[in-house]
Amino acid sequence: MTDADDTTVASTSKSTKRTRLRSLYHSRKARQFRANSLNIVGLVIVLAIIASALFAPFLTPYDPTEQNLENRLESPSLEHPMGTDQLGRDILTRLVYGAQISLRIGVIVVAISLGIGTVVGVTAGYAGGYVDEALMRFVDILLAFPGLLLALVIAGILGPSLTNIMIALAVVGWTRYARVIRGSVLSVKEQEYIKASQLMGVSRVRIILRHILPNVIGPVVVLATIDMAGVILGTAGLSFLGLGAQPPTPEWGTMISEGRNYLQDAWWVVNFPGMAIMLAVLGFNLLGDGLRDVLDPRDTDAVQNKGL
């Protein structure tokens, strides 16, 4: 193959990509998503948070842990748009870097929960019988504990650290994925073409990968998005209680906990992190709702669980 051929292939695939994107943008579902302006608000908030996490070092000239005791507790100004905290650190900088932490925890916890949930859900749904019964009863048992209380106890026993918070939240979090995925697997399994493939001797793994998993993506994406909100809120809550980040990590919940003594004299120390948590949670909730309307038309009636 010559160089010229390469370029052509590349440019073709680029333009197909563009066409695909354009057709995605004009698709019925995308239009449906855009019709509700709250969905757009959610998407914008989430994108903004992701962007600030990714480009944190370019967004601010300060270091999130750099102290300046002479300039502590300064009110918002041009130099420090959200003021400085009790150690003279720039709050905006800490919030922006804090977005990295919250998102990272959110993604990791959701990924672990999703991983365990998928394995358990697919196994239960596909195998059926005693395996299904045993796995789902175990899920029932875990769901018998109010989620965040169990996370609290687990994190408390393991000791304060962000890793332990992630473990605790994942232990509590995977059960809902397992249920949703099992449900989808069950409904897909009964369909004719799956039965046909089975008869044709297509391997189980292949059936699961090719036919079953694509069908459960919709509800799972919705659940994962809304779960991001839950995990961010849960992390902040557990950190507020002192079970999470160690100083000087700019974790949002920890910032509120450490700043609460300054509530009256320096309102910015607590209220900006509070708003950051609220915005992030709101963004993922709105986005999740929007995606549900589009991807998961059966109203799953999933009531969010506001945590701590």
Binding site: T65, Q67, L69, Q86, L87, P247, P248, E258
Partner: peptide
């Protein structure tokens, strides 16, 4: 916590 962070700084 604050004192520890001052020492760290």
């Amino acid at each position: 916590r604050e004192m520890a962070q001052v020492i760290q700084g």
